[in-house]
Amino acid sequence: MDVFMKGLSKAKEGVVAAAEKTKQGVAEAAGKTKEGVLYVGSKTKEGVVHGVATVAEKTKEQVTNVGGAVVTGVTAVAQKTVEGAGSIAAATGFVKKDQLGKNEEGAPQEGILEDMPVDPDNEAYEMPSEEGYQDYEPEA
């Protein structure tokens, strides 16, 4: 019985440690998101679009440190934060509304985080759909 109880105690310690790591990862992701939003706020009209992409990228980098179902929630929060940063930029006159959601080359930025393969159960990952990809044929 002692062996059984000791095993359960060790398992509990492992769960607590994993929860603490997840909590730490979420806190880091939130900190990076805040950094990115402050970065966007300090940019001029020309830099705002690039700044919004930076927020998304920093958040995406930190999301990889967070495991399990938390990833889905962090990704949703990050996307809403990026959308909010863009709205703030438009409201303050840093950028025109028609410039939001495009990178410096004018290509749409939507789907940055949505296409990231995420499995809350950590069982399997699927690649994003290939609808947006084109076949590449090298020139002879």
Rank of each mutant, 00 (worst) to 15 (best):
residue 77 V to I: 15
residue 25 G to A: 15
residue 46 E to N: 15
residue 10 K to Y: 05
residue 38 L to H: 14
residue 93 G to L: 15
residue 135 D to V: 07
residue 4 F to P: 00
residue 8 L to G: 00
residue 140 A to M: 08
residue 105 E to S: 08
residue 104 E to V: 01
residue 76 A to L: 12
residue 78 A to L: 10
residue 125 Y to Q: 15
residue 9 S to T: 05
residue 105 E to Q: 13
residue 117 P to H: 03
residue 51 G to F: 07
residue 78 A to G: 03
residue 66 V to I: 12
residue 63 V to S: 02
residue 3 V to H: 05
residue 23 K to M: 06
residue 81 T to W: 03
residue 2 D to H: 07
residue 115 D to W: 04
residue 74 V to L: 14
residue 77 V to F: 13
residue 4 F to D: 00
residue 93 G to C: 02
residue 35 E to K: 14
residue 123 E to F: 06
residue 57 E to Y: 08
residue 68 G to C: 01
residue 72 T to R: 13
residue 69 A to M: 02
residue 51 G to K: 10
residue 7 G to Y: 06
residue 40 V to S: 01
residue 77 V to L: 14
residue 49 V to S: 10
residue 68 G to V: 09
residue 115 D to F: 11
residue 100 L to V: 15
residue 43 K to C: 09
residue 47 G to I: 11
residue 137 E to K: 06
residue 138 P to M: 06
residue 115 D to M: 07
residue 36 G to N: 08
residue 140 A to L: 09
residue 43 K to R: 13
residue 56 A to Q: 03
residue 127 M to S: 09
residue 128 P to E: 09
residue 36 G to R: 11
residue 79 Q to C: 07
residue 28 E to R: 15
residue 88 I to M: 08
residue 27 A to Q: 11
residue 94 F to S: 12
residue 100 L to K: 08
residue 14 G to W: 08
residue 53 A to N: 03
residue 71 V to L: 03
residue 136 Y to G: 04
residue 43 K to Y: 07
residue 31 G to K: 15
residue 3 V to D: 03
residue 30 A to R: 03
residue 62 Q to M: 04
residue 21 K to S: 11
residue 46 E to W: 10
residue 77 V to G: 05
residue 6 K to F: 11
residue 55 V to H: 01
residue 21 K to E: 01
residue 86 G to R: 13
residue 117 P to Q: 11
residue 126 E to H: 13
residue 134 Q to I: 04
residue 79 Q to S: 07
residue 117 P to G: 10
residue 131 E to Q: 14
residue 95 V to Y: 15
residue 35 E to D: 10
residue 9 S to I: 11
residue 53 A to T: 05
residue 137 E to C: 11
residue 113 L to D: 11
residue 76 A to F: 06
residue 138 P to Y: 07
residue 129 S to K: 05
residue 119 D to P: 14
residue 33 T to M: 13
residue 104 E to L: 09
residue 126 E to I: 03
residue 96 K to C: 06
residue 28 E to D: 08
residue 96 K to S: 10
residue 82 V to D: 01
residue 48 V to Y: 14
residue 122 N to D: 12
residue 91 A to L: 05
residue 35 E to W: 14
residue 17 A to M: 12
residue 50 H to P: 01
residue 107 A to G: 12
residue 63 V to K: 02
residue 34 K to D: 00
residue 74 V to T: 05
residue 124 A to N: 01
residue 22 T to G: 06
residue 19 A to C: 02
residue 65 N to R: 14
residue 20 E to N: 12
residue 55 V to T: 04
residue 66 V to A: 07
residue 26 V to T: 01
residue 126 E to C: 11
residue 1 M to C: 00
residue 96 K to I: 02
residue 87 S to R: 11
residue 34 K to Q: 00
residue 2 D to P: 13
residue 139 E to D: 04
residue 23 K to G: 03
residue 126 E to P: 08
residue 104 E to Q: 13
residue 6 K to D: 02
residue 24 Q to S: 09
residue 45 K to W: 13
residue 102 K to C: 03
residue 52 V to C: 03
residue 17 A to D: 10
residue 131 E to G: 11
residue 84 G to F: 11
residue 95 V to H: 12
residue 4 F to C: 02
residue 58 K to A: 12
residue 94 F to H: 15
residue 4 F to N: 01
residue 128 P to H: 03
residue 56 A to N: 03
residue 128 P to Q: 05
residue 32 K to F: 08
residue 20 E to Y: 14
residue 45 K to E: 00
residue 73 G to M: 13
residue 6 K to L: 03
residue 103 N to W: 11
residue 99 Q to W: 10
residue 29 A to M: 11
residue 132 G to Y: 13
residue 13 E to C: 03
residue 29 A to T: 11
residue 48 V to R: 00
residue 15 V to Q: 00
residue 89 A to C: 12
residue 59 T to V: 08
residue 118 V to Y: 14
residue 34 K to I: 04
residue 78 A to M: 11
residue 120 P to L: 06
residue 43 K to V: 09
residue 67 G to N: 05
residue 24 Q to E: 07
residue 5 M to N: 05
residue 106 G to D: 02
residue 42 S to Q: 07
residue 96 K to F: 13
residue 93 G to Q: 15
residue 8 L to R: 00
residue 77 V to M: 13
residue 73 G to Y: 10
residue 84 G to W: 12
residue 90 A to T: 15
residue 99 Q to D: 05
residue 73 G to K: 09
residue 48 V to M: 12
residue 75 T to N: 04
residue 140 A to Q: 15
residue 129 S to F: 13
residue 117 P to W: 07
residue 62 Q to I: 11
residue 108 P to W: 14
residue 84 G to P: 02
residue 52 V to G: 02
residue 38 L to E: 03
residue 12 K to M: 03
residue 124 A to I: 02
residue 23 K to Q: 04
residue 20 E to R: 13
residue 8 L to S: 01
residue 43 K to M: 12
residue 12 K to R: 07
residue 104 E to P: 15
residue 63 V to Y: 09
residue 41 G to N: 05
residue 74 V to P: 01
residue 50 H to G: 02
residue 59 T to Y: 15
residue 128 P to Y: 05
residue 48 V to G: 01
residue 77 V to W: 14
residue 134 Q to C: 14
residue 130 E to D: 11
residue 28 E to T: 09
residue 60 K to V: 05
residue 44 T to V: 06
residue 106 G to A: 07
residue 61 E to W: 10
residue 137 E to W: 05
residue 22 T to M: 14
residue 127 M to T: 02
residue 86 G to W: 05
residue 31 G to N: 13
residue 91 A to G: 10
residue 49 V to D: 02
residue 32 K to W: 13
residue 118 V to H: 11
residue 127 M to A: 02
residue 111 G to Q: 12
residue 46 E to G: 02
residue 16 V to G: 04
residue 79 Q to D: 03
residue 68 G to P: 03
residue 134 Q to R: 09
residue 107 A to C: 09
residue 139 E to L: 09
residue 99 Q to K: 07
residue 130 E to S: 08
residue 104 E to F: 15
residue 15 V to C: 06
residue 70 V to Q: 00
residue 120 P to N: 04
residue 73 G to L: 09
residue 27 A to I: 14
residue 41 G to D: 00
residue 37 V to C: 05
residue 91 A to H: 12
residue 131 E to K: 06
residue 132 G to P: 04
residue 84 G to L: 13
residue 39 Y to T: 06
residue 129 S to H: 07
residue 117 P to S: 06
residue 74 V to C: 09
residue 83 E to D: 04
residue 126 E to F: 08
residue 29 A to V: 09
residue 14 G to M: 15
residue 53 A to M: 15
residue 61 E to D: 02
residue 128 P to S: 05
residue 63 V to G: 03
residue 70 V to M: 15
residue 4 F to M: 04
residue 33 T to S: 04
residue 139 E to F: 14
residue 98 D to M: 06
residue 26 V to K: 00
residue 122 N to Y: 09
residue 103 N to Q: 10
residue 3 V to I: 09
residue 38 L to N: 04
residue 56 A to D: 00
residue 133 Y to G: 11
residue 103 N to G: 06
residue 81 T to N: 02
residue 88 I to Y: 10
residue 110 E to Q: 13
residue 69 A to K: 12
residue 71 V to G: 02
residue 122 N to M: 13
residue 122 N to V: 13
residue 12 K to S: 04
residue 15 V to F: 05
